[in-house]
Design a protein around this nucleic acid. Structure first.
Lengths: 243, 243
DNA sequence: CGGAAATTTGAGACGAATCAATAGCTGTGG
DNA sequence: CCACAGCTATTGATTCGTCTCAAATTTCCG
């Protein structure tokens, strides 16, 4: 069995969301083996498309995006490695927003939940988490200041990367541009840039060469009054170590 | 069979979301008969509570609310008559935000979806619509101006009231205060007030004595570039008549 | 090494918040 | 029927946060 650090993000995340049988881990690896590469900027899902089967994001970053007629863009949510895409529980479903690859990405079909009860449970928890993240996004956009929005989002991303075994300590690979960040946060890239500089000056974070590290996540979370989402008995979210 | 205008909102909405058998309508009426009244400002659901069974909002308005430690408040979504509450597909679920009654409200247990396939389908579509409304809220808060936010939300509410058979033409009973509206839109009540006056001056809407009417919903929607959410083959949302 | 993309910087304009005060309603009790 | 209390809505003056438009700089990548 590989160590957590080398485990497939999909496997790490699903196992963290629900206990999996060996056969289920096996099925995941098989699915991952059939993953398809997709280039950055390509759409994984187009708004209005019908969604047949769930997919797993094996690697890379993607996002649900809504484009306004006049060119304004809102990034609804991020899709990280290990996330489930296109879960749906009603017939003839349509995607409500398109999903685009933010980086080169690798995608596979999810094993049928009906055959694997543990996986089905993990998918369900994943779905609940998605909703919790969506609500967090609403609160960020509606009631947080620019700096709070940035800190809050980065804390969320750190937690999620931890879930997938992709964060080491308080750092993780961060492939986004400030422009993308701005579209997620309802700000302009210019303002994101200035606020990031402020955060750096206050020694809240380091971001260099595609790698981001939060100096003291627990302290930062306290500072902005952040409460990580809980969706089942135990918090599914990464618990930042108290220093 | 009562006319649409007099039909129970719950029945009107569920029938609009999926075809229901007579026995299912019957079951809904039975459930409605056992509805409990709840006073304005009471919580229907507390954040972190475990959610056992789905509920139906029989009458009155409610909202999912998140409160920040420093008193800021964000209204995540509205819950209107006929809406389903606490749908959940994984064990030991926790509510991710509290739901408070904005007016006096009437709530009942939803009939078990497992016994009624038509209802199960309606619940599923309802769930998909909830997500679509949540995404719409993200876009509103992230990328629309104050005036666009107001128009967009009011259009959404009109559509939803129509679904429940509670709008007549372009008007419906609107029990919210400007303060509540502000908390939903990520604005201050002062600014909401000024923008509403603007909308009235431009003859986009009338709002007097708890009744709101949009002068020309189709035109207003075009003006702000609004696209009503679609979640299944046919649009579940009210189609504004073209004048 | 060269060109495109991303980041950084500056100055000024604008949208929305804030603070504070007034006016209008709604319901309640005398 | 009036007076009062307590919300809700309205108004004004000012401040603050964020946007806009450019331009310069740095980084990334072929």
């Amino acid at each position: 069995m590989p160590t957590v650090a080398r485990m497939q993000p999909v496997v790490a995340r699903m196992s963290a969301l629900a206990p999996l049988a060996a056969s289920e881990v096996e099925a995941l690896h098989e699915a991952i083996g059939r993953a398809q590469p997709i280039r950055a900027r390509r759409e994984l899902l187009t708004e209005g498309d019908s969604v047949e089967n769930a997919r797993l994001l094996v690697g890379g970053w993607a996002a649900r995006v809504r484009l306004l007629p006049d060119g304004r863009r809102q990034l609804v949510s991020f899709v990280l490695p290990g996330d489930v895409l296109g879960l749906c529980h009603h017939p003839s479903p349509l995607a409500v927003s398109s999903v685009v690859a933010l980086t080169d990405v690798s995608l596979c079909l999810a094993p049928a939940g009906s055959l694997f009860p543990g996986l089905a449970r993990a998918f369900a928890v994943s779905r609940a988490l998605d909703e919790a993240y969506l609500i967090a996004q609403v609160v960020r956009l509606g009631r947080l200041t620019a700096q709070e929005r940035i800190s809050d989002l980065l804390l969320e991303l750190l937690e999620r990367m931890h879930l997938a075994g992709l964060a080491s300590g308080n750092a993780f690979d961060f492939p986004l541009t400030q422009e993308v960040l701005a579209d997620a946060l309802g700000l302009t890239s210019v303002h994101v840039n200035r606020m990031l500089q402020l955060s750096r000056k206050e020694n809240d974070l380091h971001w260099k060469g595609g790698r981001l590290s939060l100096v003291d996540p627990a302290d930062l979370a306290r500072k902005i009054g952040r409460v990580p989402p809980r969706v089942s008995g135990a918090s599914a979210a990464f618990q930042a170590p108290v220093l």
